[in-house]
Amino acid sequence: MVHALERIRGALTPNGVLVDVRPVAARWPLDIVTTGRAQSAGRVDDSPGRVDDRAADRALRTMERRGLFRRIDQVTFPFAYLWDSVDEMSDYIAANWEGSIVLPERLLARARKLEREARGERRVRITMRVIIRTYARKDEPRGA
């Protein structure tokens, strides 16, 4: 990861900026959404993804410590995924996020119950937390 960041830094102009965009594990909420209403089924277990988060954070801190990047700013915001049903959501997670997210049985049961009880059009929503951090490229420290 650090090696990749070194290469990316080399591709930047001296005033260049690195923009790191990624979701961060934060026990994302799972809701059943109907017109004008969202009912919470609970939170997904995204703890497996924290290993990747920590590795990425460590790599960036290494670059900062070595004087190669300086952090400029950081913002976080919600990023929602919406499916038509709990089954669609489960299939999507199994196909795309295996190893990053676990849906505990109790959470799934609660989501299915809310889905059955919901009136009218309903959707299933997981709201991720996404972070954008920006870093200015710094010159190589003297003597490096």
């Binding site: 990749a4 290469r7 080399g10 591709a11 930047l12 690195l18 923009v19 790191d20």
Partner: peptide, 16 residues
């Protein structure tokens, strides 16, 4: 990213 087939100092922004 570890084997970028690109010239150095070419970009103003790099998005991960």
């Amino acid at each position: 990213a570890e084997h970028l087939p690109l010239r150095r100092s070419l970009f103003d922004r790099a998005i991960l």
